[in-house]
Design a protein around this nucleic acid. Structure first.
Length: 154
DNA sequence: GCCAACGTTGGC
DNA sequence: GCCAACGTTGGC
């Protein structure tokens, strides 16, 4: 079992939106970064656990937990000219972009803020990729010990 | 293959 | 809105 952190901008898609989705499940489309693509396509497995992170908002932080409900499969929005995520260079025979399905599992009563996480940057969360300066990946692996420590903060 | 220009991310 | 970080693009 692997652990991950997935970012979303709540103004676009928030944990409340996921809570309201049918079966609290959605496909996680729109990732257009090769490193993140490789994780979606090759590494994320059904049952993996995910921290949901709100970025680009007033109080960035981890807001809950989800589970991978379906492993990587082609992101259909890459073929849709009307989509913001349309990629005219991607071919159906060789899709460039992938997505997974995620199911909301738990919403934290209070989010674990980025500020809180930072206070442990030189301790239990040393090496957490989210805290690395300039990190821009929208999907990050989390170690089991990081996962357990962060959960203890919830 | 180099690298400058450009675009995006994301905290503040 | 600013700006640092960093990925991508494209000319050479």
């Amino acid at each position: 079992m692997n652990y991950w952190l997935m970012k979303t901008e709540p103004s676009t898609f928030s944990i409340e939106d996921l809570a309201k989705a049918p079966r609290r499940t959605t496909h996680w489309d729109g990732v257009r970064n090769y490193q993140a693509r490789n994780m979606l396509r090759d590494e994320m497995a059904k049952g993996d656990r995910v921290f949901l992170y709100h970025s680009s908002c007033a109080v960035p932080g981890i807001v809950g937990i989800a589970r991978i409900a379906r492993a990587g499969y082609p992101d259909h929005t890459q073929f849709d000219p009307k989509s913001d995520h349309y990629d005219p260079a991607s071919r159906r025979e060789a899709p460039r972009w992938y997505m997974v399905d995620v199911t909301l599992e738990r919403r934290f009563p209070r989010e674990i803020t980025l500020e809180t996480l930072r206070t442990h940057a030189r301790g239990a969360l040393d090496g957490l990729l989210l805290l690395r300066a300039g990190n821009r990946l929208s999907i990050l692996p989390v170690t089991e010990s990081q996962w357990n420590f962060i959960l203890s903060l919830a």
